[in-house]
Amino acid sequence: MAAILGAEVDEEGYLLNIGDWSKEIALAMAAEDEIELTPEHWEVINFLKEYFEEYDFAPAVRVLTKAIAKRLGNDKGNSRYLYSLFPYGPAKQGCRFAGLPKPTGCV
């Protein structure tokens, strides 16, 4: 099994145990993807984590964009903006950085 900063990840780089998550891990994952985490990124990551805490599931992209609109302003509440933050998709890449499991299905 592969690992990042000692935490086990699956073959696609998602944490096996959400409890292993730390800011350092998020930073390390982002560094691997050549992304520098800005406060906006953290806003997304934090929302993902909060939502997951409550629903045991990642938010739908639309739910995420609306939450981000509330937090960062309407001009940033759209998936185009979120894609600019997470080029591999806010759901997939965002969830990985946040330590959540990968969303599966036709997405």
Binding site: Y55, D56, R62, G105
Partner: peptide, 24 residues
């Protein structure tokens, strides 16, 4: 496996689905 357990490909539980629909 997720369909079997939860009912959909995503593995989206009922509360998350309900919340999403309300949001919409």
């Amino acid at each position: 496996g997720k369909v079997k357990k939860i009912g959909n490909n995503l593995g989206m539980p009922e509360p998350a689905l309900r919340d999403t629909l309300l949001d919409l």
